[in-house]
Nucleic acid binder design. Structure first.
Length: 629
DNA sequence: TTAGGGTTAG
């Protein structure tokens, strides 16, 4: 039996017995897994032993009962949640102390919603007990808008918590979550003492705001960095499209002997996915295995995405299959992976499998599903999924979903329908939606509708350089040179310059990067010439329309020849014995696509190209996209 | 009590 009968409390040594029993129950609570049902069992013991008024015990009990993400969060026998139960237990304590109040406030705060504030207001109205610093760190966690934070901050000032490290650190974090970098910095600057947590929170503030130089400046001036501050910096680089800097930091971190955990690895995985370099991906994967394999679904989902973006759909699927716990992220990542490689049917099959589980798809899942249909020309299926999303899953389509639908219809040549959908959508179309229409106009050579799309596009995204390039491409294809000049003049007037095309390719001695128009080594120049000769003999004729300048055909040919992916291909032919993998920063042009097709046949090589849209796998003269891109 | 993480269209 766990406890002696109640009567044993009534001894001359009652206080001593109670203390011993409290210790026993605390140990019991420490050993319990958390969740509502185990908590209820221990609560029964607490009541039997007459300790239901112990603030300390009850606070610990509530912390256990309200542990989130446990299946026991809902008790089917009483139809109550752990919060209903905790509230009830709390109300039975006649003199709750500040710690007990705070425990309940924190539990509500972690769940979101207004209850945390209501409870605090009740506490403040009573006037006793007075809040403690813990109370405010819990309240700041409950805030989701900076104004709420400012209101609570006024209370901290009044009660003298304005120099408390924990309170101020949580306040910085709140401003970071709300995107208020300046407010976060003001708190940071006025703190009498700061610790590594204050610094790291501030590094994150700058990283979220895209100011990686300011983040780096703080990071460099931190005398004692820990794993979290290193990881914050690394992830910041990855999130701001600076994968090389992220991986460089990862190497430095390892060299400095800083420990690494799953969060660090996720940052590195993410960076590697952006670079698209497969041998690096494999290295990081084996590092993950050294750390015990992808134990969390977070790492697994990141790995799936990484392998897909590095061109290996097979390895992405292997990771997915091996995952023992799958969730909406892992399914969405895998469906999106099939989509970017043009495997629409496989994406739809996996989506069906997902529907048979108890994991409901979310709006991101549908982006993947719709993109898969769009990249494979499965128009009716896409239309059907768009309806299912709304009717069955009650997900209202976002502008991104409309962009997919406009792309789906437009790509398939149903331009008017796409335009009609766009005009009747209930939310404001963003640049992506008009961009999809403009892209479809390019494919189907509809310069008139392109003008309509471009007009709107320039309104919502006046500095989107790609839009001007796309429009001038469309005019160029229609040989409307005056219009081409007009667009180019507009670009110049706005101080916009074309992003230089850039490709990188995996060689034996690392990754080689090429820019369009680079001066080439003799070796590469020769390899390129030989390739073009062989291709011409096999029927390749340069698509001069791809050049948007009104210059002679000879000059156009020279421009095309220097496109970075062609140079990368020539380099790959020289250095790689088998498959050639190229990553490009912009969209591949029609001419390069054609040459890749022909080259895969005449050079008898598999070529995999990732551009900023999707993957193309070239093999024996054909592309996996089936010319539908 | 307080800081770092995964899937998103053109």
């Amino acid at each position: 039996m766990l406890h002696p009968p109640l009567s044993s409390n009534i001894t001359t040594n009652g206080a001593y017995t109670a203390a011993v029993e409290e210790q026993q129950l605390l140990r019991l609570l420490d050993g319990c897994t958390g969740g509502i049902r185990p908590a209820k069992r221990i609560h029964a013991h607490i009541i039997i032993r007459g300790l239901a008024q112990s603030n300390f015990l009850i606070a610990k009990l509530l912390r256990k009962a309200t542990t989130i993400h446990r299946p026991e969060d809902y008790d089917t026998t009483t139809s109550s949640t752990s919060m209903d139960y905790s509230q009830l237990v709390f109300e039975q304590v006649s003199r709750p102390n500040a710690f007990l109040w705070t425990t309940l406030i924190r539990a509500y705060a972690l769940r979101g919603g207004p209850e945390a504030f209501l409870l605090y207001n009740r506490m403040a109205a009573l006037g006793t007990p007075r809040p403690i610093s813990f109370t405010f760190s819990a309240l700041f966690k409950a805030c989701s808008a900076s104004q709420q934070g400012k209101d609570i901050q006024a209370h901290t000032l009044k009660l003298g918590f304005d120099s408390d490290l924990y309170v101020q650190n949580t306040l910085i974090d709140l401003y970071v979550r709300c995107g208020c970098v300046n407010d976060a910095r003001r708190v940071f600057d006025t703190m009498p003492t700061r610790d590594i947590i204050s610094w790291t929170a501030m590094i994150v503030a700058y990283a979220k705001g895209g100011d990686m130089e300011a983040a780096r400046c703080l990071f460099d001036s931190l005398p004692h960095k820990d794993m979290v501050s290193w990881t914050a910096m690394l992830s910041g680089y990855a999130q701001n499209a600076k994968p090389q800097e992220a991986l460089q930091l990862f190497e430095e971190m390892k060299a400095a002997g800083v420990p690494i955990d799953e969060v660090t690895l996720v940052g590195a995985i993410n960076a590697c996915a952006q670079l698209g370099v497969l041998h690096l991906a494999r290295q990081i994967h084996s590092l993950v295995m050294d750390y015990g394999g992808p134990e969390s679904v977070v790492v697994g989902s990141a790995l799936i995405d990484m392998y897909a973006k590095c061109g290996s759909l097979k390895e992405a699927y292997q990771v997915f299959e091996k995952m023992t716990v799958k969730n909406v992220f892992s399914y969405s990542a895998m469906i999106g992976s099939f989509a970017m490689h043009g495997h629409g049917r496989a994406a739809l099959r996996l989506f069906s499998q997902m529907q048979a589980t108890d994991i409901p798809p979310n709006s991101v899942t549908f982006i993947g599903v719709l993109a898969a249909c769009s990249h494979t020309g499965l128009v009716e299926e896409g239309v059907q999924c768009f309806a299912t999303m709304q009717d069955e899953y009650r997900i209202s389509p976002s502008a991104d979903h409309y962009a997919c639908m406009v792309d789906l219809l437009g790509r398939a040549g149903r331009l008017e329908e796409a335009h009609e959908l766009l005009k009747t959508m209930p939310i404001k179309p963003h640049a992506g939606v008009w961009g999809a229409l403009l892209g479809a106009c390019r494919i189907h050579g509809n310069a008139n509708l392109a003008e309509v799309a471009a007009k709107h596009l320039f309104e919502v995204e006046p500095d989107g350089i790609g839009n001007y390039v796309l429009l001038s491409n469309i005019y160029a294809a229609a040989k409307r040179w005056d219009d081409v000049r007009r667009v180019r003049k507009e670009m110049r007037g706005r101080g916009l310059r074309k992003n230089p095309g850039c490709s990188w390719v995996e060689g034996k001695e690392g990754v080689q990067k090429f820019f369009a128009g680079d001066v080439l080594s003799e070796e590469i120049e020769t390899a390129l010439e030989e390739l073009l000769e062989k291709a011409s003999a096999a029927g390749y004729v340069p698509k001069l329309d791809c050049v948007v300048y009104d210059v002679s055909d000879g000059e156009k040919e020279q421009v095309l020849k220097r496109h970075s992916e062609k140079v990368a291909l020539a380099f790959g032919l020289l250095t790689m014995e088998s498959r050639i993998r190229i990553v490009k920063n912009l969209r591949m042009c029609d001419d390069c696509h054609l040459l890749m097709c022909v080259a895969s046949r005449v050079a008898e090589r598999e070529i995999v190209v990732r551009d900023n849209m999707r993957f193309h796998h070239f093999k024996q003269g054909a592309c996996s996209c089936g010319e539908f891109w």
